[in-house]
Amino acid sequence: MDSSHSVKESGDIVIPVRDVKSSKSSKGVHPVNIVSSTTKVDHVPHVAGWKRGVGIIDLILRICAIIATIAAAAVMGTTSQNLPFFTQLFQFQASYDDFPTFTFFLAGNAITCAYLAFSLPFSIVCIVRPHIVGARMLLLVFDTLALALTIAAASAAAAIVYLAHNGNPNTNWPALCQQFNEFCPRVSGAVVGSFLAVAILVVLVFLSAALLRSN
């Protein structure tokens, strides 16, 4: 409240003096909201940790795919069987290189295995720096190409293995596995290993796409 009092000056002149207290009403003054950035700061390490965990899974899956493709290529490349016919001078032989499809299968899995081995450093970089985009995009593109190559090789070889096991009476194609009882199980196992690598590559492609989408 305002208060006033009189001050007597010389000559008996009374000068009224008013003391004015400046007061600001709190009405109409909007409070300042201070938004804490703690939630956002805490969210960044959480996202980085999630991406780093997915990157570790990516690295483990790549190692598993390397094992699958190198095993498939090695088994196919060492598959051969001889069948004696009357004497040792006349023999039936079955080898992987007698079938162009099996040769393509061997080359396709070997190429995929070599690519996966070279991709390991890039996968490690993505673990150390989970927010990097260039390396992850590179892995996504080449993983897709490796997937296409591997699934083509495995599918073509699977068709030949099916004919070797069952034959085709309409075209007079005999079931070779009735005679070559060692050759067929080995090529069948190689095809199974290649399809296992295909499944792993599918997961790798989805993981890379998910990580890129979250950036």
Results as ranks from 00 to 15, higher is better:
121 P>W: 01
121 P>Q: 05
122 F>P: 11
122 F>I: 15
123 S>D: 04
124 I>R: 12
124 I>V: 08
124 I>Q: 12
124 I>H: 06
125 V>F: 09
125 V>P: 08
125 V>M: 14
126 C>E: 09
126 C>D: 14
126 C>W: 01
127 I>A: 15
127 I>M: 10
128 V>S: 12
128 V>I: 07
128 V>E: 14
129 R>W: 11
130 P>C: 08
131 H>Y: 11
131 H>D: 15
132 I>N: 14
133 V>I: 07
133 V>D: 01
134 G>V: 13
134 G>I: 13
135 A>C: 09
136 R>T: 11
137 M>K: 15
137 M>N: 13
137 M>F: 13
138 L>R: 04
138 L>K: 06
139 L>C: 02
139 L>F: 01
140 L>Y: 05
140 L>F: 04
140 L>D: 08
140 L>G: 09
141 V>G: 02
141 V>Q: 00
141 V>S: 03
141 V>R: 00
141 V>H: 00
142 F>R: 00
142 F>M: 12
142 F>D: 13
142 F>K: 00
142 F>V: 12
143 D>F: 05
143 D>A: 06
143 D>P: 05
144 T>Q: 05
144 T>Y: 03
144 T>E: 11
145 L>V: 14
145 L>T: 10
145 L>A: 08
145 L>D: 10
145 L>Y: 04
146 A>M: 04
146 A>S: 04
146 A>K: 00
146 A>E: 04
147 L>T: 10
147 L>H: 06
148 A>C: 08
149 L>D: 15
149 L>G: 13
149 L>N: 13
149 L>C: 15
150 T>L: 03
150 T>M: 06
150 T>C: 07
150 T>K: 00
150 T>W: 06
150 T>R: 02
151 I>C: 07
151 I>L: 07
151 I>S: 12
152 A>L: 05
152 A>D: 14
153 A>I: 03
153 A>N: 02
154 A>V: 03
154 A>H: 03
154 A>P: 11
154 A>N: 10
155 S>R: 00
155 S>I: 03
156 A>I: 05
156 A>K: 01
156 A>F: 05
156 A>S: 09
156 A>H: 03
156 A>N: 05
157 A>E: 10
158 A>Y: 00
158 A>G: 07
158 A>T: 07
159 A>G: 08
159 A>Y: 07
159 A>R: 05
159 A>T: 08
160 I>R: 02
160 I>H: 04
161 V>A: 01
161 V>E: 02
161 V>C: 04
162 Y>D: 13
162 Y>N: 14
163 L>Q: 07
163 L>Y: 09
163 L>R: 08
163 L>F: 12
164 A>I: 08
165 H>F: 11
166 N>E: 11
166 N>A: 12
166 N>R: 03
167 G>R: 00
167 G>M: 01
167 G>H: 00
167 G>C: 02
168 N>L: 10
168 N>R: 06
168 N>P: 10
168 N>G: 09
169 P>I: 06
170 N>P: 13
170 N>M: 15
171 T>L: 14
172 N>C: 09
172 N>W: 07
172 N>E: 13
172 N>A: 13
